[in-house]
């Protein structure tokens, strides 16, 4: 894995966390219960913390000079972000948010567990080891809600089944290997995505069965996020997130 591949692998980790954390922050003050205001902001907080670590590490690998986590978060354009399409999907209703979180948490947990164990990049291992503890809690939270909503009322069942059907097309992208994933696999930094998919399937199927939900068929999968091809909603999200650093270039906050 060369420097540029490592940098991009770290950017992907940081971008997944940043964009999902930003989406979750939109819930603050609007959740179905006070307990969920706390839970969703807490998960957002963890994810933005992971972002800071991954993006700072990625920023140290730019050949033209070190970039800070803030520069990477606030001064890149949409085409430069490499997050999964899944994490940028709009919040929708609480069920949409939970399904998005659940599908991602299961993947993020397995990925972080691998990175925490590898020795190719000890700094990334350190970040991932801390993240594993956080994501375990996130996965526990989203799994419990999957079961409550799936096996709750007829309305919640049909709503969350629909969310699952709608978001399923974004799950394929998590397991596609490109040159960065392959070099990451060779060096040991990144997991084997084919193997990881099998473990993900087990986790997902276990919870879906407890939730009395039907796993959607693997149909056509939407991809593009890893190449910087995002959804239309993504631009508005970045505009909101980046407005202050863009309006006041060079200012310190």
């Amino acid at each position: 894995m060369n420097n540029s591949q490592l940098k991009n692998a770290l950017l992907r980790l940081g971008d997944d966390a940043l964009i999902l954390g930003q989406r979750l922050a939109e819930w603050c003050g609007h959740a179905p219960a006070l307990e969920e205001d706390i839970a969703l902001t807490n998960i957002s907080l963890d994810l933005i913390g992971q972002t800071q670590s991954y993006l700072s590490l990625a920023g140290s690998l730019f050949e033209e000079g070190i970039k800070s986590d803030d520069e990477l978060a606030f001064l890149r354009s949409g085409r430069e972000f490499q997050n999964l399409l899944l994490v940028e999907q709009p919040n929708g209703d609480f069920g949409d948010t939970i399904v998005r979180q659940f599908l991602f948490d299961a993947f993020a947990l397995l990925r972080a567990e691998h990175i925490a164990q590898q020795s190719f990049n000890p700094e990334a291992a350190g970040i991932a080891a801390k993240a594993v503890k956080e994501i375990r809690y996130h996965f526990d939270h989203s799994s419990k809600w999957m079961v409550r909503l799936g096996d709750g009322t007829p309305e919640s069942h049909s709503r969350v089944q629909k969310s699952l059907n709608d978001l399923w097309k974004f799950t394929g992208e998590m397991f596609i290997s490109d040159e960065i994933d392959r070099s990451g696999l060779e060096s040991g930094l990144l997991p084997n995505l084919e193997e990881l998919k099998k473990e993900w399937d087990v986790k997902i199927d276990d919870i879906l069965s407890k939730a009395t939900l039907v796993r959607p068929e693997d149909g056509f999968m939407q991809t593009g996020g890893r190449k910087g091809i995002h959804t239309e909603a993504f631009g508005f999200m970045l505009a909101e997130m980046q407005i202050l650093p863009r309006t006041h270039p060079g200012a310190s906050w």
Binding site: A25, I48, G49, Q52, D69, F74, M241, L244, P245, W253
Partner: peptide, 10 residues
């Protein structure tokens, strides 16, 4: 969602 730095957001 508009906090001007990651640290301020956290």
């Amino acid at each position: 969602t508009r906090a001007p730095s990651l640290q301020r957001k956290v």
